[in-house]
């Protein structure tokens, strides 16, 4: 791709990643959450692949993404196991004042980020998983295509 495309996409990567993180972080307050946020972040990877192409070393990056995929999934299910003192998936953090633990009053929600208990943490886990998995899939498809062309 031309220098213009490369430069612009390099600049755009940062705001795209930040927007993805924003969608994940506010998943329990606004529309969105782990899955859409992770998908937004993976779009940045797609853009980078489109603009810069793939180099020889990118096959190893696929494995790194796969690793993060597993870690994201395990983090999600680990948060579910944390609830076992009452039931599986129980929200142990909500309303206990610790991380994400503020109680929410009834009525219109002013949008306090410090609420939701385990849900924002699970959103992060899903976000990592979706970002890593979609990136790995795109890399796999591109690498496969390049093998066919060679």
């Amino acid at each position: 791709m031309s220098a213009i495309v490369k430069t612009v996409s390099a600049f755009m990567t940062v705001p795209m990643m930040i927007f993805g993180l924003y969608v994940i972080l506010h998943g329990h307050l606004t529309p969105g959450g782990g899955f859409p946020g992770g998908a937004v972040m993976a779009t940045a990877v797609a853009m980078l692949i489109a603009a810069f192409g793939l180099s020889q070393s990118d096959a190893r990056k696929k494995d790194a993404f796969s690793l993060f995929e597993s870690i994201g999934l395990l983090a999600f299910i680990a948060m579910a196991f944390v609830g076992l003192q009452s039931t599986f998936f129980a929200n142990v953090l909500a309303g206990h004042g610790w991380i994400f633990g503020s109680s929410v009053s009834y009525g219109p929600n002013p949008g306090y980020l410090e609420t939701g208990g385990v849900i924002p943490i699970m959103n992060f886990a899903v976000g990592i998983e979706v970002f890593a998995a979609l990136s790995a899939v795109m890399l796999a498809i591109m690498l496969h295509r390049r093998e066919k062309h060679d």
Binding site: G83, S86, T87, F88, F89, A90, N91
Partner: peptide, 9 residues
């Protein structure tokens, strides 16, 4: 029954 996420199963 086992209710996921409830205070008691």
């Amino acid at each position: 029954i086992y209710t996921l996420g409830a205070s008691v199963p």
